[in-house]
Design a protein around this nucleic acid. Structure first.
Lengths: 254, 254
DNA sequence: ATCGCGCTATTGTGATCACAAAGTACAGAG
DNA sequence: CTCTGTACTTTGTGATCACAATAGCGCGAT
């Protein structure tokens, strides 16, 4: 199938299910439950890292085979992601990774700029010195990924950095909303970075870290906001050209 | 089953499926596809109107029977709503309408106050004089529901009013986010209003309408923000008392 | 009367099947 | 070579089944 660039090994996906006949009979030593969650998790990560390209179809049986299950858990996982608009269901029912439009991208960044600074503010009181150290570790790893040009690592680490902050808001309202938005722009961002490279990329993580250390809510909020806007301005120029390319080329199969 | 107060007739739900044997064979004159969407729609409305009480379990087979289908479409519908956090899945897998906590409620209103004013601003340029008239109609109906004390009608009309505005933002980013939040506080709001009544309720719809007529983005934005905060302050006092009640009483069955 | 234990009914889960609709490829005609 | 119509393949959908886990209930002992 090969619908993801990194292959199955990178995500821990494996298709070693050995001909179950029917019913819930197991066979291997895998835990009984959690198949759907495993599928959902794999898809969410693939989307956030941007491992799947926009427009790429996601089929029930295809994914099921890659992950070594029946189409059933995949159906529920896909339905869940589709409800979050992380997957696009065409009128005929076919499922695919959503394509990006200029308007949609602008609105996504708009929503991010509204939600994420607030989440960071809520999180600030809960970020211990210990946690701050981990944030610094992640940010160092980001710098490393930027010099080495490893786009996939950058995507993963950047996500880790932001959510390592937001997570401490302990908000089951803001976190799902923000995650939903990240799921939607992951594949697009990855495509852009893959084209223009991450060389000229400037983030405001250092400013954010300083604000956290100084217990400065407004400063942290502003750093996050700038970080979001920055990502946009870098992409700005490549966006319109990308749109054209995306529209022109019908699609290429695996 | 009777898991919703209004009964099946109010939502157009009916259980008249006549013993299909197996496979996709139809039989009646119903449209082939869309069963899942019908289930999802029914559930979404029930949640937004608040017809289902927080904590009330939502079972696969139960809902399936009420809606006259197999458990399968219900599974997907529930999985979708669960992904939006509109339904709560316990660790054992049981599904129920989420209960509210004080913190969660505050965060929901916080998120609303961030997202909805922006959506209204985006919508403003697209609201024609024709559309404004319809908004006035809805607002009049709201006033009527307030004097008659019809809580369910108020819930439905208030939702209609807000989304009649936001819809014109034509944003497939903001609309889903806002809808997700409404799904979460619908059942709770309904419960509160059912207890304290809608008599002392003050909204800022008139101000919003005036701002729309005057093409005043900042005014509209502020009116929406006030409308949201207002709903909170009214509930504020009843909230803590409600929390206790909710925690004390284990649950009552149908 | 209250607490504890075991049984039973309920409920979600994963698998499989049959079917229809849509997409794709292929072959033949112009 | 291009266009078109047909046959085949792919894909989602709804239904049903077997099973395990769990929640709820009643029965019995103290």
């Amino acid at each position: 199938m090969l619908w993801m660039a990194g292959g199955a090994a990178a995500t821990g996906m494996r298709a070693d299910r050995g001909e179950e006949h029917h019913g819930g009979g197991r066979g291997d030593g895998q835990p009984r439950s959690g198949v759907r969650d495993r599928v959902t998790g794999a898809l969410r990560e693939a989307l956030i890292i941007g491992r799947i390209q926009p427009g790429r179809p996601v089929t029930l049986r295809g994914l099921a085979e890659v992950l070594g299950t029946s189409p059933m858990p995949v159906r529920e996982a896909i339905r869940g992601l589709a409800a979050e608009k992380a997957l696009d269901v065409s009128e005929s029912g076919r499922v695919a990774v959503p394509r990006m439009s200029e308007q949609r991208f602008a609105e996504i960044l708009d929503a991010r700029a509204l939600l994420e600074p607030r989440a960071a503010e809520l999180a600030l009181p809960n970020i211990t010195r210990e946690r701050l150290k981990e944030l610094k570790r992640i940010d160092d790893a980001i710098d490393a990924s930027l010099v080495s040009g490893d786009v996939e690592a950058y995507m993963r680490l950047n996500h880790q950095f932001h959510f390592a902050i937001y997570r401490h808001s302990r908000s089951d309202v803001f976190l799902p909303l923000i995650e939903s938005v990240w799921l939607r722009f992951g594949p697009f961002m990855r495509m852009i970075y893959g084209r223009v490279g991450t060389a000229g990329l400037v983030d405001h993580h250092k400013t954010a870290l300083a604000a956290i250390a100084g217990r400065d809510p407004a400063g942290l909020s502003e750093a996050i906001r700038l970080d979001i806007r920055e990502g946009m301005s870098l992409i700005g120029e490549a966006l319109r050209a990308e749109m054209d390319t995306q529209a022109a080329r019908p699609r290429r199969r695996s």
